[in-house]
Amino acid sequence: MRKMLTLLLVTVLACSLGNLVLSLSGIALTGPTQSFAIPQGGSRSSYIRVWNEGSTTATVTVSSSGSISDLVTVSDTSFQLGPGQSRKVDLDYYVPSSYLPGSCQGTIEASTGGGSIATSIQRPASVWVTDSGGSGTTTISLSKGLNLVSWIGVDSSLGQALGTGQGISRVWKRSESGYVFAAYYEGTGWWSSDQDFTHLLCGEAYFVECSSARELQVSMSQGPQTIELEEGTNLVGWAGQTVPVNVAFPQSSSNHPILRIWRRNQSGSYTSNQYFPVEDTWWSSDPSFTDLENGRAYFIECSTDASFALPG
């Protein structure tokens, strides 16, 4: 006996008009890549944007799955959208201080379809939980001698950042006219001939002259999200995540403002990583110089003014 099996209480409404196929249910999704490094106790805001691509008003459901669900809050988990309408849904990531460092993976999913068939768009999401030493701090390691570093802590006065300067002889920064330094003087505290040099700023580059090796515990900061470069040689601190040079500075054969990046080695020598436009590639004779490292500073040669957003 031949029987009919209907997988829903709703009548099939598929219809066609010439080559036009009417979409009964559909969804679209866009938004930034959901991949972040967040320290313990830290947070990050992001979003997705969804559209109802169907021909009738639809209920849209937004959810997270996988271990990422522990860390993300979706602002709107269910809402209605008319045909063609869109909504921006906030995603707030928060890593509790007690959360163990490591990787959390999962998906953010937006779906629609009131019948037996639903469509959904999934967006992979991952959070790399970094160790903050339990208090949202990180360490800047300084060797004896001259160190070229990026300040990756929150903007701090010299006294807050460096205390009474044990082991640190001088801190130099580049100014329009050359270099100026600050030093710690008993009874006076930190002092510089440049009256504006009173703070260390996140993402700024500094030469730190040390009489002995030491480590600085600093409160982590995100720093500026954009790096502004001028034609000529720039001294730039890298407060972003450690990433390959080509990710930090995406260039193309037809648009390559950066000619070369110089890294100071602890011995005092410099090695460079150069962009070759014809081959569209970065290359360094130093095989260890493939990444821009969080906490280091670099000299960057530019052929023209440019700005780059920090990746991730």
Binding site: L7, L8, I27
Partner: peptide, 22 residues
């Protein structure tokens, strides 16, 4: 000059809300 990113976009839709089998 500056650089910026274009975010991923995806859309999917179906021509049916239900299916019948015989």
């Amino acid at each position: 000059t500056t650089t910026f990113g274009i975010n991923e976009f995806a859309s999917a839709s179906l021509d049916s809300a239900s299916i019948n089998f015989a």
